[in-house]
Design a protein around this nucleic acid. Structure first.
Lengths: 170, 170
DNA sequence: TCATTATAGTTAGGTGGCTAATTATGTCAA
DNA sequence: TTGACATAATTAGCCACCTAACTATAATGA
């Protein structure tokens, strides 16, 4: 993922706002900061996962499977939850199955469909990764008290709902 | 980009926290919400830019150039600011140059280096895109007052500084 | 009944990012 | 002076995602 390292100075923002009257300087600054922190986090997550021979897409699939009480789902549902195409999910599952972390099981009731199940090896992989990941995440967030965490989630919720306005006229 | 569409329920988070004592539930929830909103924004941005025949990487390069008073930079500096490798920047610049949006200019003082300059066509492209982008961004952020925007930036700043802890023991 | 449509998953081919190696040029110290 | 190293940009080849098209199966309705 592309990682914005260089946020604009106040002076640059003012200059852009002068050329483009539609600009809302504090909205832009907040947006850019949000993108930057999120990409930083994603890059750091990649680094953490690579130590365990995992890529982010495959790791999310394992987590989605572990969230299910029967450790099972289908390619379509997984693709929907992960926001990738079904074609991409086929590739992710190929990789995971090759590594023995998930298992494709045919479904007699609907022969178009396939069940995807987390294997014991897949669970073991998560048991190796998650403590590492959670520990880092805890450290990374420890500067925020409960109030700030709630504030953050509330503010992000407002932005997410505001995004319906994004596609207002397409 | 991968777009998390499915956040865990409180019940699932509790179950994970029970298996992994390292888990900090509110830290995880905040982190996932942050990633989700950021990827949603990035996907929406992609959609907006594609209407103008632009890809995100190339668009950021144009913006970085416009931030310079002489509309000029170098591949190395642009790569650094965008958080991509110099090899990737070569590809981005190839695309932009082919579209006439930037221009490679040789530097006699250091014959290893190349100056990259925003062309009038590149500036015109930005003049077409930015009002659209800024308008959407304004709508998307209009649910937040100035206090909340400041809070958001402050909280993100804490997380960003906390990320130095991420790589604590590699 | 059976043509039409919808759905599940895969395959084929394209693209943008990556790493590693290459070419060319500049810098510096013995 | 010159050998070793550093730096700038590029090329070559890999990988994960994409879209579009395909196969197989199920559901629907005239």
């Amino acid at each position: 993922m592309l990682q914005l390292r260089d946020l604009p100075t106040q002076e640059v923002l003012r200059r852009f706002a002068q050329r483009y009257p539609e600009a809302d300087v504090t909205a832009i600054a907040s947006f850019l900061m949000l993108l930057r922190v999120a990409t930083d986090l994603s890059v750091a997550l990649d680094a953490c996962l690579s130590k365990h021979d995992l890529l982010q897409g495959r790791w999310w699939v394992l987590i989605l499977l572990m969230r299910e009480t029967d450790l099972t789902s289908t390619p379509s549902v997984l693709a929907e939850k992960l926001g990738v195409t079904r074609a991409s999910m086929t590739g992710l599952l190929d990789g995971l199955e090759q590594g023995g972390l998930v298992q494709r099981i045919s479904v007699p009731q609907d022969r178009r469909s396939v069940k995807i199940q987390l294997t014991p090896a897949g669970q073991a992989k998560l048991d190796a990764v998650m403590p590492d990941y959670y520990t880092r995440l805890r450290l990374c967030m420890q500067g925020l008290n409960e109030q700030q965490r709630n504030d953050l989630q509330a503010i992000l919720g407002v932005i997410d709902r505001g995004m319906s306005a994004w596609d207002f006229n397409q």
